[in-house]
């Protein structure tokens, strides 16, 4: 166990946000789900007690007859904002006094940095480069992420959970987002920061970053394993595999989307276009962990090789 190496990585000033993220993201996830659970319990009570549902103010926050439902912004909101600004300023000041922004040697095109890493928030994309060619990892995937985020409100037809934390009323939506945001985006950033060392090789936390380390891994393309040797059969085979994956993933997603009576009800509210867009996005999102598994477990480089592009 090389504690020194671990400390060098963790204490790098530019890595503070990631180390912070390791605590902040789980904290806020817990904080949100705790409130969701409280609301879900209330919802359950109200479902079982229609009379109460008619009179209850339907929040977990305390409320009594005669209380105002709205308070003046000045002072009740503004003092919170002012307080937040002061606290943030103090944190920033202390942070800036104690830790210096990094500055390396002057830029030198003939001296490659190893590892040369993107800023931390793009390390997820850089990590994706291991599994996909740059046109997918650097261009197609980011575009899909942005488009996917933008269309969320337009494909989510579940009217419940508008303006309060809940888990039970939006299970599928919440799992999808947590999968995309925490399991894929955040943890790939953490891998890119803490695990990847020189040559973008995998170093477990505590392993020494050995700059001379060589890993002999023989990555093969899927068609080689199957024994197809000539185009156009290679391309056709790959296309079939990718198409097959899309169909299988789409079917699996559909099973999950239509798993419960409630989710079928929501599904029936969706238009065909909404459904198609949602499926396309889900399939692309699933392609990432599937390709990761194919690469890490079975040493497969490409599944689809054509004269123009490889997947």
């Amino acid at each position: 166990m090389d504690w020194h190496q671990l400390w060098t990585i963790v204490s790098l000033p530019d890595n503070i946000p990631i180390v912070g993220m390791l605590f902040i993201i789980p904290f806020f996830t817990w904080y949100a789900l705790r409130q969701a659970r409280a609301n879900d319990r209330l919802a359950e009570r109200l479902e079982n007690d229609p009379d109460l549902a008619k009179t209850h103010h339907r929040k977990v926050q305390p409320f009594q007859k005669g209380w105002v439902r709205e308070v003046a912004v000045w002072p009740y909101l503004l003092r919170m904002e002012f307080l937040a600004a002061i606290i943030v300023t103090i944190i920033l000041m202390v942070w800036s006094i104690t830790l210096d922004a990094p500055l390396e040697e002057p830029a030198n095109p003939s001296l490659t940095m190893n590892p040369s890493k993107a800023p931390w928030y793009f390390l997820g994309l850089q990590e994706m480069l291991v599994y996909f060619d740059p046109w997918i990892a650097g261009v197609v995937m980011p575009t899909m992420i942005i488009i996917g985020l933008i269309v969320i409100p337009y494909i989510d037809e579940n009217p419940l959970g508008n303006g309060y934390y809940t888990y039970k009323q939006r299970r599928f939506a919440i799992w999808t987002f947590i999968f995309g945001f925490i399991i894929l985006w955040c943890s790939m950033i953490v891998i890119g920061t803490l695990i990847r060392g020189p040559g973008w090789m995998w170093f477990w936390p505590g392993m020494t970053w050995d700059h001379n380390r060589l890993i002999f891994e023989i990555n093969r393309d899927l068609h080689e394993i199957v024994g197809i040797t000539s185009q156009p059969w290679i391309g056709i085979f790959g296309g079939l595999v990718v198409g097959g994956f899309a169909v299988a993933a789409g079917y699996a997603c559909h099973r999950i989307i239509a798993a419960t009576e409630f989710s079928r009800k929501i599904l029936n509210r969706m238009s065909l276009l909404q459904y198609a867009i949602m499926q396309a996005l889900l399939i692309v999102m699933l392609a990432l962990p599937v390709k990761m598994a194919a690469r890490l477990l079975f040493r497969i480089k490409y599944v689809w090789v054509t004269p123009w592009f490889n997947v």
Binding site: A32, P153, G161, N162, G163, Y164, I174, F177, F181
Partner: peptide, 10 residues
């Protein structure tokens, strides 16, 4: 993340 979890995009 919080806007998503509160369903505020609806």
């Amino acid at each position: 993340f919080r806007v998503f979890l509160t369903g505020s995009y609806k």
